[in-house]
Design a binder for these strands. Sequence first.
DNA 1: CGCTATTTTGAGCCGCGTCAATACGGGTGG
DNA 2: CCACCCGTATTGACGCGGCTCAAAATAGCG
Lengths: 245, 245
Amino acid sequence: MSSTGPVPQFNLYQLRRTCGTCSLAELCLPMGLPHDDMRRLEALIAPRGPIGEGEHLFRVGDPLRALFAVRGGFFKTYLIEATGREQVLGFHLPGELIGLDAIWPQKHQCNAVALSTASVCELPYGAITDLSQELPGLQQSMLRLLSKELALSHSLAGDFTAEERVAGFLVSLSSRMKVRGLSETQLTLAMSRRDLANYLRLATETVSRVFSRFEQDGLIAVDRREVALRDPERLASLGRCLSID
Amino acid sequence: MSSTGPVPQFNLYQLRRTCGTCSLAELCLPMGLPHDDMRRLEALIAPRGPIGEGEHLFRVGDPLRALFAVRGGFFKTYLIEATGREQVLGFHLPGELIGLDAIWPQKHQCNAVALSTASVCELPYGAITDLSQELPGLQQSMLRLLSKELALSHSLAGDFTAEERVAGFLVSLSSRMKVRGLSETQLTLAMSRRDLANYLRLATETVSRVFSRFEQDGLIAVDRREVALRDPERLASLGRCLSID
DNA sequence: CGCTATTTTGAGCCGCGTCAATACGGGTGG
DNA sequence: CCACCCGTATTGACGCGGCTCAAAATAGCG
């Protein structure tokens, strides 16, 4: 049995609407914030209801009004090069903040689109920075998140072989799922092969081939977008560190 | 005549020791800060004298004590992969801040080494964040710098051909030199071919070959580490945007 | 003037991209 | 329920860009 149906998704609409009770709080902006401070932050945050698959949170050039924290579902950020080619920058799981690269010029530098039905918390940028002026913990959180993203981006920058990239991606995703209390061996890829390949800077055919090879070698079991890690150890040794969590 | 001697370097020791009179202030952390605020920032900053070529500012794992702003000279940041291979993350010109990726875990995530005799301003991290708690402009500056670095990192992430990478690098460097009031056509590369190739994720031989090809095509003139841009237009059209300035 | 590190140039090979064909799956309408 | 269609994924054949290996040129330095 390769899949008995989709892995249990994040329960989008059962998530409480406050940071204090949100299971993602420790991954998200309020991480490590004292309770009282968290309440003040909450007051600024606007939850935003179901966002349909394919719907955009923002696009390149949009003025930065708010940062977005993923509550449920998956997002992809990408940009369109001068040549017209799409370039996937990242996939974003619940608890992660999107739009940080817009702070510099106050305009979004990439597009953000939902890969599945999703929901987010909207954090009005001005209000957040105003508040962080008063709450040292909040300022620290923001700097830390930015810095972390930077480190992640660095770790992605190396020149890796196709196998290293794919293995690294799987291991990293596994660890991100684990942190969120989900299965670390039974992964459901939210993205198409094309998006994944683009993100990894490979051709879709190459990703396909590597998946097949890994399956033959008993490293994983692939069924469409369900991937089971059979030998996480060996997989981890194959993939260079693409993870930061 | 390809070179009549080295291009005039930044006058390290003639630079005044205060942000208020530093020609790099507008590129650096105090960018856009009101005069009074700048004075308060200055009080925290410790200039650090001549740093010899090959000397390290910090290494992976060092606790984050301070961020460093380059005043004169050039730095390289890099890390050593698990496999032992070096990975160059970036080259840093005067006015740029180094060490931002250390904020997240409070430990430096990369090594920083001087490529030439250099000097820096040392910004004690705790003091900076404390002050930025009071000065909204300073907080904005820090967020902007981080965000900018992130955007730069994104723009580097694409999969480019060797020619695109080299051309992009030259164009980007040219623009960074121009901002600093130096020649935008007569570039002095501070780094070895090996470092440059590593940074661009190419083999040194490939960089060498691309340089030769560009020279044959009349795009540039190369003499050792002196590179003259002969046709910046065409060069820019070749190289995808690797710049953010 | 030799020694060594760096850079350039050449030859050959291999991983991955490209092109093309096939297989699969999910949705739609009869 | 099945036939059909179309987008996505897989598999195969082939070519090319850039890496590797090797050697020659050049520069830096004692």
